[in-house]
């Protein structure tokens, strides 16, 4: 491996003084610092345009930050070869590209790129099938990707993220098109996966209650470009925080030890 070695005792992710802007006067995010020192399920929440997706893309090296640094296992992400980084950090964007005429299985196996040579091995086929099974869409394996619904596309993209077998999986609103069963299912699956494998998931979500139920940590973003607070759901989800960040009124009630946010539907 080129450059610095990975130190697996170091945190999977350290973000320090991160800033990004399309031009110098207008930054999208600034002074972002946080560390994922323990594996687990972390949700990023916050209003539209606050810089959640930009933050995730900076972490993944998709966009180059204007300032600050992102370290994965102690090594700066910009020093990774893309293929090496792909084995450690996975990313599922909010919009899935068109896969042209491609079966769902082929679309999922694209995620195996960093672990595969030119040929498709039986192992890759099986891992892709297992990932589809995990997302409860194994029956769609040989269907054309373009024939599926938006929710099914999301499950295919999630499967693609899984077959990459990353240590850190970045997800941009992966449950936005899913039905309520699968919103719960996918969130619970990710939480359980983190608990059992020591993997980390960093997921952008707009569903605060789902985040409160399953996340180990919440990063609340707002006002635009900054982090408001970081902590367990109990720590960050207060009536005051929701009001400050989202400008909505709500009641936070206790639901079996987890906060549950009830909107007042008054703006």
């Amino acid at each position: 491996m080129a450059g610095e070695e990975l130190d697996f005792r170091k945190p999977i992710l350290e973000v320090r003084d991160l800033a990004f802007g399309y031009n110098p006067e207008r930054t999208v995010i600034q002074d972002i610092s946080f560390t994922l020192d323990k594996p687990g399920f972390t949700c990023i929440v916050g209003p539209n345009g606050v810089g959640k997706s930009t933050l995730i893309k900076c972490i993944n090296g998709i966009i180059r930050p204007t300032r600050g640094e992102v370290k994965v296992y102690g090594r700066d992400v910009s020093t990774f070869k893309l293929k090496e980084l792909a084995k450690i950090v996975g990313y599922v964007p909010v919009m899935t590209g068109s896969y042209n005429v491609m079966t769902v299985l082929d679309a999922v196996m694209i995620g195996r790129y960093s672990r595969q040579k030119w040929r498709t091995r039986p192992e890759d086929i099986m891992v892709a099938h297992k990932a589809l099974e995990a997302m409860e869409i194994d029956d769609l394996a040989m269907r054309n990707f373009n024939e599926l619904s938006a929710g099914q596309h999301q499950k295919v993209s999630l499967s693609r993220g899984l077959v990459q077998e990353p240590k850190l999986l970045l997800l941009d609103e992966p449950t936005s098109n899913l039905d309520i069963r699968h919103q719960v299912y996918v969130s619970a699956f990710l939480k359980r996966l983190c608990d059992k494998t020591g993997m980390s998931v960093l997921m952008i979500s707009h569903d605060l209650n789902l985040a409160a139920k399953f996340a180990d940590r919440i990063i609340v973003m707002g006002p635009p470009g900054t982090i408001h607070s970081i902590g367990t759901p109990q720590e960050v989800f207060t009536e005051q925080t929701i009001r400050d960040v989202y400008n909505v009124r709500c009641k936070v009630i206790d639901d079996e030890g987890k906060p549950h946010i009830v909107l007042e539907y008054v703006i």
Partner: peptide, 19 residues
């Protein structure tokens, strides 16, 4: 050819997949 397949997922996700 295999890298060209990765591109079909979009520029951003292909970067995260390794291309």
């Amino acid at each position: 050819a295999r890298m060209l397949n990765v591109i079909s997922t979009g520029d951003e996700s292909s970067r995260s997949i390794g291309v």
